[in-house]
Nucleic acid binder design. Structure first.
Lengths: 178, 178
DNA sequence: CTGAATAAGTTGAAACGTCAAGTTATTCCA
DNA sequence: TGGAATAACTTGACGTTTCAACTTATTCAG
């Protein structure tokens, strides 16, 4: 049986067997793990993982507030997506918008209600993360995972277009949390 | 009656620094890599990564056809999602539905048009995968990646509910490709 | 053999993300 | 100083995914 999945028609460098296998596993993890995390968080804490990420990012800022453009970057989302999400979070009373430093800036601020919601969600979320990821890996593997993903990100982030702004902003915005 | 003197501050095992850092990177990769892959494939080959996966899976089957329930499993998607996607692919003329063995089974079959479309998409896709993932990793790291993700999947898949059928079907359906 | 339970798909509505277009504020520079 | 360009959003429409409900076929118990 031929190991190559799709016969290479053209003189293109194909994936070798190791790579192909790695890719299959990686894609499965990509698909299944976020789905699992997300649906558990939705069920048991009433928020999506992206919403959790946004609120968690806010909670770590001085004054629990951050300008949307920066928040978009730390949350790995587009400004548009963030704007929609902030609207949803506002409707729940977990976040409020405040006009920022200069007139075109908008800050999102985590409310007390949002903070306590987040405090309840945190343990639920991290217990699941631990169960699904860290409990099945050795400490050595955790290090490998960190190293490999950070390498991939390093190559990926510079060319990510979360708007042309991301490139500049990301470095500063992430500095404190890496 | 139990008197609780001091409220438990952190009754939950938290993530340690290594784990937290690994988790941040993992989540970023989760978010950014599929988005990058997907949008490039959409732009340059006119299909989503999920559609590509579905068609690639079909192309490997004898007769280039597979029953939907099995296809759903190998594509890591729900039956409902798959049904919608097959409808789209049918509209493009890349796949057709055929009634399967027993009356309630439906097979999806890759058409010639679909096959040649796939052959064009393959190199485009894999070049990008290589560029974003394998070119930035050492062979050693590729092995680590494979090992770590396959471990995570092993724990994850058994409890995945892509319908109660997944558990049984997956083992058989995946056997040939691992 | 008959009715109940389950399996396999389909479908429509609601929720979410993306994309393009629109708004307002700020900066640039001639 | 006065446009033009750009930045920081917001909004609405569109496509996709999920969820629940529904159909039809098959299996199983008695």
């Amino acid at each position: 049986m031929k190991r190559q999945v799709i016969p290479a028609a053209k003189p293109v460098r194909w994936l070798n067997n190791h790579e192909w296998s790695a890719w299959l596993h990686l894609m499965a993890t990509f698909t299944l793990l976020p789905a699992a995390i997300d649906s558990q968080l939705e069920r048991e804490a009433g928020m999506s993982h992206f919403e959790f990420g946004v609120m968690a990012a806010l909670s770590r800022q001085p004054g629990r507030r951050l300008q949307l453009k920066d928040l978009a970057v730390v949350a790995n989302g587009s400004l548009s997506r963030l704007s929609h999400v902030i609207s949803r979070l506002e409707r729940q009373g977990w976040v409020r918008r405040m006009s920022g430093a200069n007139g075109r800036a908008t800050n999102a601020e985590l409310t007390d209600k949002g903070y306590s919601k987040l405090m309840k969600a945190g343990p639920i979320h991290f217990a699941e993360v631990r169960r699904l990821v860290f409990d099945v890996l050795t400490p050595e593997e955790v290090k490998e995972l960190r190293r490999v993903t950070s390498r991939i990100n390093a190559a990926l982030i510079p060319e990510t277009n979360l708007g042309p702004l991301a490139r500049r902003t990301r470095a500063g915005a992430l500095r404190q949390s890496s």
